[in-house]
């Protein structure tokens, strides 16, 4: 029996390789330096975790516009506890426990927001884009109210290690990202929940008639999405060395682009973590490569836009070709 090929992953792999080589050629000796690769590995996790948070909801045919607001709120809660309890100049004994507690509180905040999204989408059947637009605004507002619009800074060094530390030459953030991506792949490919996410994303009516508990699957999906936003919050907290409402706002639309670039269907039901990772590498390679060329970071986002359109156009033609072969 012949295999149905994942032509989108092939297109993506080719684009990734080509861009990587292009950047190596344009920046001879510089692009492949350990320092540069490390910088790339420092930058990617933030967007990477947020994109995973976005992608998992897109697989169910939904979307989560509140991920950035969630991450900020979660980061703010963690930061408030930390700055309240620990003086960074003279960390008290038992600071480790307080840090864990603060992180747990941050993640818990994220989960509460995820639960709200899940209930709105699964129980009230609000369209995901509207539900999360609402929670985005609400959570963002709460973040502004709790911080009075100020930056919360003065975090203990241990927290800064998460985003800036290096273990065996590999940035800690990158290790966290790899673990989280692997965990997501495991959930999606090897658990009943993941299986159901894809089926529900393709046809929620049929999945319901097949005994899938759609409500639970959707709620769990938004919980996972929020949890990943919470993970991203830790990295943001430590890289900015502070928390504030409104950090990383421009990431929101980029996470949608990254997911779609990685082959996640905007209509739901299809998409893989491997594709998303390749997409993230593409975006990072372009961004770092252009940066080495001293090109404005705004031209980078232009290139990102162009790449996504080119890839979509290529997918359009490859789908057309496949169709013609089938007839």
């Amino acid at each position: 029996m012949k295999k149905y090929k994942h032509s989108e992953l092939i297109v993506l792999g080719a684009v990734m390789t080509a861009l990587f080589l292009l950047m190596v050629v344009l920046n001879p000796g510089e692009f492949l330096r350990i320092g540069n690769l490390q910088t790339m590995a420092f930058q990617l996790p933030e967007l990477g975790l947020l994109s995973l948070a976005m992608m998992v909801t897109m697989l169910t045919g939904g979307i989560n516009l509140s991920i950035i607001a969630t991450a900020n709120m979660s980061g703010i809660v963690t930061a408030l506890i930390l700055t309240g309890a620990i003086n960074p100049e003279a960390p008290p004994p038992g600071a480790g426990g307080i840090i864990l507690l603060a992180v747990a509180a941050g993640l818990l905040t994220a989960l509460v927001i995820g639960l709200l999204n899940g209930l709105l989408v699964a129980r009230l059947k609000v369209s995901p884009i509207l539900a999360t637009l609402g929670t985005m605004t609400l959570v963002n507002g709460l973040a502004i109210v709790t911080t009075r619009g100020y930056v919360i800074s003065g975090l203990p060094n241990a927290v800064r290690f998460i985003g800036n530390g290096v273990v065996l030459g590999i940035p800690v953030g990158a290790i966290i990202f790899i673990l989280c991506a692997a965990l997501m792949a495991l959930i999606l490919n090897r658990t009943p929940l993941g299986f159901n996410i894809y089926m529900l994303g393709s046809n929620p009516v049929a999945s319901r008639y097949s005994g899938v508990n759609n409500t639970t699957v959707i709620i769990k999906t938004y919980l996972i999405s929020s949890l990943y936003a919470g993970f991203a919050a830790l990295i943001m907290l430590s890289r900015f060395n502070s928390a504030k409402a409104g950090y990383g706002k421009s990431y929101l639309l980029i996470t949608i682009l990254a997911s779609v670039l990685g082959g996640t269907s905007a209509a739901g039901g299809f998409g893989r973590v491997s594709g998303l990772v390749m997409a993230l590498v593409i975006l990072q390679v372009v961004s770092s490569g252009l940066n080495l060329l001293r090109v404005s970071s705004f031209l980078t986002i232009t290139f990102w836009g162009v790449i996504i359109i080119l890839v979509m156009v290529m997918n359009f033609f490859s789908a057309k070709l496949k169709e013609r072969r089938l007839v």
Binding site: Y4, L186, N189, R190, T191, P192, F195, N196, Y198, M199, S202, N203, V205, A206, S207, Y209, S210, G211, V212, G269, F270
Partner: peptide, 29 residues
């Protein structure tokens, strides 16, 4: 509409009702 998830594979459609019976000891498929 109700019977099958038309875009997904034959394989997935067959096991959708029994997916929880196809797990190993780590609760993974």
């Amino acid at each position: 509409v109700q019977g099958l998830v038309m875009n997904q594979s034959v394989a997935k459609n067959i096991i959708i009702t029994t997916i929880t019976r196809l797990l190993n000891k780590f609760k993974l498929i």
